[in-house]
Design a protein around this nucleic acid. Structure first.
Length: 819
DNA sequence: CCGTGTTCTCTTTTT
DNA sequence: GAGAACACGG
């Protein structure tokens, strides 16, 4: 968001439609305008859309949800009931009826992608943009506020946002420093406790007050908490939880600031309300409070010049579905939605039950599953669009077997005319991607793993980002220390520690310490290296206000010699690293295109807050792989839910978590309801967790689905299994038996099997396949080539096998030979 | 100081 | 089975 957009605030309501130019009230706060009279939040907002058109084609409940006006509205929106439609129409309706200016609207979505989509849809409805609306995630909205109000909080506006990895690194060091590891404290464990505290708006002092002081572990955590917070402050950094919590504290400690936002936002809309935690709830509460009347005297701008009174509290619309609450582990409190009517007096509730997404068979399965959660208001999704196909069930013998079935089935769907992009494969844990990917690669299937955010976790990307952070926020010691010896400049652990100590003793940031390196007493070589780094950082920092991110990034990579080092390296991996850095440059370039005014800190904030679902490229022709959590809010023509096994879904960790079983069921429910037309439920009878292969049993949730809805496919694996068995016996006879008995009668040891097939360095580059060739495949047996597509390493072939049917294979890695 | 080899932990889900 | 942490030799 640009500065201009931020400032484009305004007051009161625009005049009703048909009247002439609206009043442009002048608001000045703290000597700085929160409102730019020359830019009326969506300059020239002159939509001629007829508001009545906006309720056209909606069902009675949806229509009511769009048209209702009042202090608080709860829209209980079952899966696929058109809630995004209702939300966007409601916003457009408010604007078209001129009941609100765009800048008076705050809409909170779950992901940036959803925010962008919502903005686009409102634009579409109004036939023009509605610039000035805040459509943001909780986190990005809070970043905006914290940056704008940074002076009052005493931090710099260009603060760093620490991700969980950064936080964990600090916890790790603190635990070590304090010898807290004797209490078996782990970074992840401490991070979880502190995160939970923050989600409850407990700060370090509050935590210390509330804890059991007789428990040494608690006291230790309290101390870590306090030191951690001190470190964040020193580094001018916030972690994810702070973004929300500090904003709440800001409002509570500065009622005048709060009043500005309470006045600015007249309509607040929150999506996925069932997954808000206490801090987020408190933030919404703050924003929807009445302005403290005593402020009117000192801040006359708060008063509506037309009425002479303070404005009413903002009206609040929340949309959610308690059956889709799946984030309890990060503090989501289902009571926020279940007790909404108690919380917000005079609230109106509207139920949306008609489903426009899925077939009745899919909905019946979903209804049946979720009905097993007690303590929920009865709800029944229905559609008038027919039963559709049956749900397909499949039991594989191994995760690879399951994956092969999915690959085959996707190819079939593709032949039927369903695009790859309309197909998603979902799973409970990220580790399940391995088997899927191994098979998909072999099957020449275009796919993309959504989330996992692998890209930003790569070494070279982390390095480059650390440079950018160190440049944008000189107080960030974490970032500065990370790049001290990147690329190698002969600064080792010992030197780094000395610099850090010097900084601590003199109350300097590490960056400042670098400037005084000569006083520390290193040799000339180290002094020279550090001075050079220090000068470079200073020079690049000076460019931040003027230069594009791309330019700064390029200079980092060039002037540090980082890129050159990689280019000169003989390690083949470094070639890929160069490519990744080029990718990062194009990310920066893209950012520059989308945000011509955007500077380095804006870029860093945006990157820090990308959500998994933001990465989905709707235009790409690839199958999407994602966790069930990431899938929330998305929908696909065909959905594969994988690993529907006890211990995986429900996950075994949930067995000991209170409410875990119900939450896992909701997760399953979310997965089922993502599907429009085709739903597949699959599982594997053996699964390898951490090397060892274990037998697994079907999930209890499967039995909750009326069996007549499921078409359990004859396991296509049968014939493969005989091949597995055959191969296994060969492996055994050759002495490969690894002794890891699976306990499952007659189950093949996929470890041995697939290892040989997948990891054997197979290179068929010279292999020329022609249509009609007969070939032999190590797993699938004999077959005949039907089609050959592509060239070189990407070449794939469709082959019809006598025993297992038609499969597509990536020629280069397929264990095949010509007959 | 740096690269390499070995042992150990780890897996729920995410902004 | 992978990545991090540690130990050791150059």
């Amino acid at each position: 968001m640009t500065q201009l957009e931020f400032f484009s605030s305004d007051f009161g309501q625009p005049k009703p439609e048909g009247s002439s130019a609206p009043i442009e009230p002048k608001i000045v706060s703290r000597g700085e305008p929160l409102f730019d009279p020359n830019n009326f939040g969506g300059a020239g907002f002159t939509s001629n859309t007829n508001p009545d058109d906006l309720v056209e084609g909606l069902n009675p409940q949806q229509r009511a949800a769009v048209e209702y006006r009042g202090p608080a509205l709860l829209i209980v929106a079952g899966a696929g009931s058109g809630k995004t439609r209702v939300l966007t129409h409601r916003i457009a309706h408010l604007l078209a009826k001129r009941e609100a200016w765009p800048s008076q609207i705050l809409a909170i979505t779950f992901t940036n992608k959803a925010a962008a989509e919502m903005r686009e849809r409102v634009r579409h409805l109004l036939g023009q943009g509605a610039d000035g609306m805040w459509i943001k995630t909780f986190h990005s909205a809070c970043v905006m506020i914290l940056r704008r109000e940074s002076e009052r909080l005493g931090h710099d506006a260009n603060f760093t946002i620490y991700d969980s990895g950064d936080s964990r690194a600090i916890f790790k060091r603190l635990i070590k420093e304090m010898g807290a590891d004797i209490h078996k404290l782990t970074p992840a464990g401490v991070a979880a406790v502190i995160s939970n505290a923050k989600n409850e708006l407990n700060d370090a002092d509050g935590f210390a007050r509330n804890m059991d002081a007789s428990d040494p572990v608690q006291r230790m955590i309290a101390e870590i908490f306090s030191r951690y917070q001190a470190e964040l402050r020193r580094n001018n950094a916030f972690d994810f939880d702070d973004l929300i919590g500090e904003t709440v504290f800001l409002f509570r400690n500065h009622p005048d600031i709060a009043a500005q936002y309470q006045r600015k936002f007249r309509h607040i809309l929150v999506d996925e309300y069932q997954d808000t935690n206490h801090a987020q709830y408190a933030l919404i509460r703050e924003l929807t409070m009445s302005i403290d009347p005593s402020l009117a005297e000192h801040y006359p701008d708060l008063v509506d010049p037309r009425t002479g009174a303070l404005p009413e509290p903002a009206s609040l619309t929340v949309v959610g579905d308690s059956d889709q609450s799946i984030y309890a582990f990060r503090g989501a409190d289902i009571r926020n939605i279940s007790e909404f009517e108690k919380d917000f007096v005079g609230a109106k509730t509207i139920l949306l039950e008609q489903n426009y997404r899925s077939t009745q068979n899919i909905l019946s399965a979903a209804n049946a599953v979720i009905a097993n959660n007690f303590d929920r208001p009865n709800k029944n999704l229905w559609t008038d669009s027919g039963d559709g196909e049956k749900i397909v069930g499949f039991t594989g013998y191994s995760a690879h077997d399951e994956a092969q079935f999915i690959a085959d089935e996707i190819n079939r769907l593709h032949r039927e005319g369903i695009s790859y992009r309309d197909i998603a494969v979902m799973y409970r844990t990220n580790s399940q991607t391995r088997a899927l990917e191994e098979i998909f690669i072999r099957a020449a299937m275009p796919y993309r793993v959504v989330g996992g955010t692998k890209f930003y976790e790569r070494q070279e990307i982390k390095d480059a980002m650390a440079y950018l952070v160190a440049i944008a926020n000189a107080r960030d010691d974490l970032a500065t220390r990370r790049i001290l010896n990147v690329p190698k400049r002969g600064i080792g652990d010992a030197t780094e520690t000395q610099i850090a100590n010097f900084a601590a003793q003199n109350d300097l940031s590490v960056r400042q310490a670098l400037a005084h390196v000569s006083t520390i007493g290193f040799g000339p070589k180290i002094n020279g290296a550090i001075t050079q780094l220090s000068d470079l950082l200073n020079e690049l920092e000076a460019l931040v206000p003027t230069d594009t991110v791309e330019s700064i990034l390029r200079q980092v990579l060039d002037r540090t010699g980082y890129l050159e080092t990689l280019r000169n390296s003989r390690d083949p991996q470094d070639e890929a690293r160069v490519e990744n850095l080029e990718e990062l440059i194009s990310v920066a370039k893209e950012f520059g295109r989308n945000n011509p005014e955007g500077r380095l800190p804006d870029f860093l904030n945006e990157v820090a807050l990308v959500a998994a679902a933001d990465e989905i490229d709707d235009e790409s022709g690839t199958v999407s792989l994602m966790t069930l959590h990431t899938a929330k809010g998305l929908e696909y023509e065909a959905v594969f839910l994988t690993g529907i096994e006890e211990g995986l879904l429900p996950h075994k960790m949930s067995f000991i978590t209170p409410g875990g079983m119900a939450e896992e069921r909701r997760l399953f429910y979310v997965g089922i309801t993502r599907a429009r037309k085709r739903l597949y439920l699959s599982l594997a009878l053996t699964r390898t967790t951490f090397g060892e292969s274990d037998s697994s049993t079907p999930s209890r949730y499967l039995q909750e689905i009326p069996q007549h809805l499921i078409d359990w496919r004859e396991s296509g694996a049968r014939s493969q299994v005989s091949s597995f068995r055959y191969r296994e016996s060969i492996a055994e006879s050759q002495g490969y038996r690894d002794g890891s008995g699976s306990g499952y009668g007659g189950t093949p040891k996929e470890k041995t099997e697939w290892k040989s097939a997948v990891t054997s360095v197979r290179n068929n580059e010279g292999l020329q396949l022609e249509v009609g060739d007969r070939i032999r495949h190590a797993d699938f047996g004999d077959g005949r080539v039907l089609t050959v597509m592509g060239e070189g390493p990407r070449q794939s072939a469709e082959i019809h096998f006598e025993r297992v049917g038609t499969k597509r294979l990536l020629v280069k890695v397929a264990p095949i030979e010509k007959l």
